[in-house]
Design a protein around this nucleic acid. Structure first.
Lengths: 194, 194, 194, 194
DNA sequence: CATGAATGAGCATTCATTCAT
DNA sequence: TATGAATGAATGCTCATTCAT
């Protein structure tokens, strides 16, 4: 269930991998993708060597960070899809993505890639999300709660846009609400009202 | 009226400056901000030395590129504001910004900065845009054609979002239209219809 | 007791640091302060990266070289002061400095700085030297073996001058002796004779 | 009378040459030999192009500056030699050189070169000085007013040393006097007194 | 296996010198 | 002829990646 099957991974090695992933997420998020690998290693409390043992490349590390985020989103999105009616679930997805992407335009780019090419390890989770959204979109359109002319790629683009807008809006809840309201209202067909 | 008063600039020097600005815009846009300065110089058909004579720093060059974009937007936005009623003008601004920002998340960040700090030379044009949008927003809200609870920062965030969404959507006109429609419809107050 | 407390430094790292210091001393001395850092790295048999890991700046490297020289001088001067009577000790200092400064006007400048500002790490050893010389000067003047009107700054200037003269005189022992004799005789008060 | 015979040099060209020489002397002296050529051109109130028309190389300019200094010294030294008895004339030379060399160890190096190789244009004036000093030295030694064992190279080295010492001592007249007194006294033979 | 020192290609920037205006 | 813009080799420094300890 967790990607490629390497041998089980010794307890401490697994711990280090996790520490690295956490540190990388934190550091990439707050200080950008430009930070030296050494910083990340330091933040994780390990040496660079260890970092490179777990992730053969800086890019691989970045990828792993993104995979994890995508998995969280996929899980959340699946839950939302099960619990609510389609348009509400879509709303929930916008929120989820926005939350997972705080401070992370670079991440949006990755999500963006969901529509096109991606590094292999991103394929699985992003396809999952994509399929789920496709399903929600169709169902909502059938239910007449989302504009019928919207295509999946357009919806993905809007998700990326939502992410960017919320990232730029900062943490104020009111602002975030207003922005999401605009987007969500816009998604509904003309004869509907929120 | 246009910043620091340098001497008029010799004909060829001006030509080179322009070539550099064009090349930088192109290269930064298509290949990101990470490209070596030498690439840009080469693309402009000049030596690195020339680049640095005109822009003392890579950052300064980036800034100049952004200033130019902001100025184009400001001009276009002003024209739109004069020609149409407020909500339509706002619509026009979304388009303008999206067009000027093709392939340019970094640029969106700059626009974003319109709301916060900026390098001095970005101040003027971004303030101009900001003021114009503030005016349009107020007028549209008075006219009842835009949701009354929206604030200027929120509108700016939505602009950034629109930019990101359109950038990700690619050049297909239909997709772009659908996306803008969603956003614009969402901006209108509940009792209005597009 | 020797400045900033870094961790003990791994064996090979220490070896490289030493190699760098030696190479830098040699290269700076024979070819001037203008040599590219790469030359120094090559001379030390390491990569540039290593050089910059040990000394964050070219200037820092130069400083380290000077600190070492000053420390050697300080040690030797202290020994001389303990062993001989003041005027003789002063004589010994002139020699010491001249030996440590072969081919090194830049170094003289550093010593010069003993009288004025200096980078922090040069402070300690240069102050030590300065204090020692101050003491020797006073004692010699009390003993009536050095001109009473001479001040410490003047003595330092003469040291710098001795250094320059000997550097220019080259290695011939006779010439060096003659020069030192002139200087030392000059230091004695009128009613004394060498 | 002024080195290589180029065609007479138009009035304004001559003026520019002079301005450049003055500016270079000033700038090299106060800010070191490292200053960009453009600075010097600016200080002279001309363009770089003009600088390079007059002096084909930065080094050539530096050389010209030194030649002029050497000529001044040579002239002064000649006058001193004519006016006073040998030891006094030597004293005068030390002063002269020190004055011409304010802030200029680099210059001392050049003078130093008087004893060895030199760029061709420095040959003439430095030889003149050298010959003059040789003559003064011999006469003084015959008169018994300078140590008999001193050779010309040693005297030159002492001049360089004097220059360095005075440069380091700064402008205070007392200090300069004390230093010169030490040196001059040291030059006298044991049985003499100042 | 972890560590952190070593490596060196890569990059921004400077500056002596040339050449179009 | 004077000007100052253009040139590009050279330099100090960084950072992903490797490897000895």
């Amino acid at each position: 269930m967790s990607g490629t099957q390497d041998r089980p991974l010794r307890a401490d090695a697994a711990r280090n991998r996790a520490k690295l992933l956490d540190a990388a997420t934190e550091v990439f998020t707050t200080r950008g993708v430009g930070v030296p690998t050494e910083e990340i290693a330091r933040a994780a409390g390990v040496g660079v060597g260890t970092l490179f043992r777990h992730f053969p490349t800086k890019e691989a590390l970045l990828e792993a960070v993104m995979v994890r985020r995508l998995e969280i989103i996929a899980t959340g999105a699946a839950r939302a899809a099960a619990d609510s009616e389609p348009a509400e679930a879509l709303f929930a997805c916008f929120r989820l993505i926005a939350e997972q992407s705080v401070g992370k335009t670079a991440f949006a780019e990755a999500l963006a890639a969901a529509g096109v090419d991606v590094h292999t390890s991103l394929r699985a989770p992003s396809t999952a999300i994509r399929d789920l959204l496709a399903d929600l979109l169709h169902r909502a359109q059938h239910a007449g709660t989302v504009r019928p002319e919207l295509t999946l790629p357009e919806l993905l683009a809007l998700l990326v846009g939502a992410n960017a807008a919320l990232e730029h809006a900062g943490p104020t809840p009111t602002a975030r609400d207003h922005i999401l309201t605009v987007l969500l209202t816009g998604l509904r067909p003309p004869e509907q009202r929120a």
